[in-house]
Computed example of a mutant assay.
Amino acid sequence: MRRRAARALLLGVIPAALIAGCGIRATEVPVDSGPAPSRKPCPVSDPSPVPSNDARVPVRVYLLCAGQLTLVERTVGLPGNTEGASRRTLVAQGLLDELARPPLPGEAADGYRTLVPFGTGVQGHRRGDPAEAFRLNVRPDRLRDGALAQIVCTFAESAATQGAGSVILGGPKGDLTRYECPPDVRNHPTATPVPSATAAPAQ
Rank of each mutant, 00 (worst) to 15 (best):
R2H: 09
R2T: 05
A5N: 03
A8Q: 03
L10W: 07
G21T: 13
C22T: 15
C22W: 14
G23S: 07
I24H: 08
I24P: 03
V31F: 15
V31A: 14
D32Y: 07
G34V: 13
P41N: 00
P41H: 06
S45W: 14
P47C: 04
D54S: 13
P58I: 04
L63C: 14
L64M: 11
A66N: 00
Q68C: 12
L69C: 01
T70S: 08
E73S: 15
E73T: 13
R74M: 00
R74Q: 05
P79D: 05
G80N: 01
G80L: 12
T82G: 08
T82W: 01
L90Y: 02
L90Q: 03
L95M: 00
L96A: 06
L96R: 09
L96K: 02
D97M: 01
R101M: 14
P103Y: 07
P105T: 13
Y112P: 02
R113P: 12
L115V: 03
V116A: 14
V116E: 09
F118S: 15
T120E: 00
V122M: 00
G124D: 06
G124L: 00
R127Q: 00
L136A: 03
N137T: 01
N137Q: 03
V138D: 13
R139I: 14
D141R: 08
R142S: 15
R144E: 08
D145G: 12
G146M: 05
A147M: 02
A149C: 01
I151C: 02
I168K: 05
T177F: 04
C181I: 11
P182N: 01
P182A: 01
D184V: 07
R186G: 07
H188D: 12
P189W: 06
T190K: 11
A191W: 09
A202S: 10
Q203R: 14
